[in-house]
Amino acid sequence: MTPPAAPLPPRVLVIDDSLTMRLFYRSLLDAAGFTVEEAANGGEGYDRVLAEPFDLLIVDVNMPKMDGYTLLRTVRQDPAVRDVPAVMISTEAGPHDRDKAYAAGANFYLVKPVAPEELVEVARLMTGRKS
């Protein structure tokens, strides 16, 4: 009898205009067993979301071309991708900022600088990955 195939690792799309932040998130999530892709702004991120399946979006707030709020509102209005979990990450730390992120469609909100173990834990939680 053939053993069952191992499940594919969860696919994460990191959408952030900062190359440094994208590389930081990628290194953490790669090491934790996720498959990570990147987009440099909200417009590029939305195009990627429509073109291929992802299990989680990690979205910056302040980006050129399309900010994170607009991106999430757009994703949440599209029946093909509206259910993809999204974590919004920002330097904005006020309660209003968190409320605005949730109103746009975020499932979770983190404030920069994000502790590495917190990002990995949230990614596991959002994708249903145990370890």
Rank of each mutant, 00 (worst) to 15 (best):
E92L: 10
K65T: 14
V59S: 15
Y69W: 13
I89N: 03
V75Q: 01
D97E: 13
R73H: 01
I58N: 01
T91K: 00
Y69A: 01
L72N: 03
I89E: 03
P64H: 12
I89S: 06
A101R: 08
S90L: 06
G68W: 01
V84T: 15
L72Y: 05
D83T: 08
P64F: 11
P79S: 13
V75H: 01
A93I: 09
A101P: 05
V84W: 03
T91C: 02
V59C: 15
G68C: 12
A86S: 14
K100S: 15
D78F: 10
M88V: 13
R98V: 11
G68H: 11
K65Y: 12
E92D: 14
D99G: 06
D67I: 14
V61C: 08
R76V: 03
T74R: 02
P79H: 11
K65D: 15
M88G: 03
D60C: 11
A101N: 08
N62S: 14
H96W: 05
V84I: 15
D78H: 13
S90H: 04
V59K: 04
Y102S: 06
D67R: 11
Y102L: 12
A93M: 08
P95C: 09
S90A: 06
L71P: 02
D99F: 04
R98W: 00
R76D: 00
T91W: 00
D97V: 10
D78C: 03
P64W: 12
Q77E: 07
D99W: 04
A86C: 10
L72M: 14
R98L: 05
A93S: 15
A80L: 14
R82T: 00
K65H: 14
D60K: 09
K65L: 12
A101K: 09
N62T: 14
A80E: 06
A86Q: 05
D99M: 12
R98K: 15
V87F: 03
M66P: 02
T70L: 03
P95N: 11
P79L: 09
I89R: 04
R73N: 01
P79N: 12
V84P: 04
D67T: 12
M66L: 13
P64T: 15
D83H: 12
T74K: 06
M88N: 10
I58E: 00
N62E: 14
N62C: 04
P79I: 10
N62F: 09
P85V: 09
E92S: 11
Q77M: 05
I58Y: 03
V75D: 00
M88D: 07
M63Q: 09
I89K: 04
R82W: 04
M88I: 10
V84K: 02
Q77K: 09
R76H: 01
R76G: 04
T70Q: 05
R98D: 01
Q77I: 07
M63E: 08
M66T: 06
P79Y: 06
D67N: 15
D99A: 15
H96Y: 08
H96K: 13
D99R: 15
D99I: 11
P95Q: 11
P85I: 07
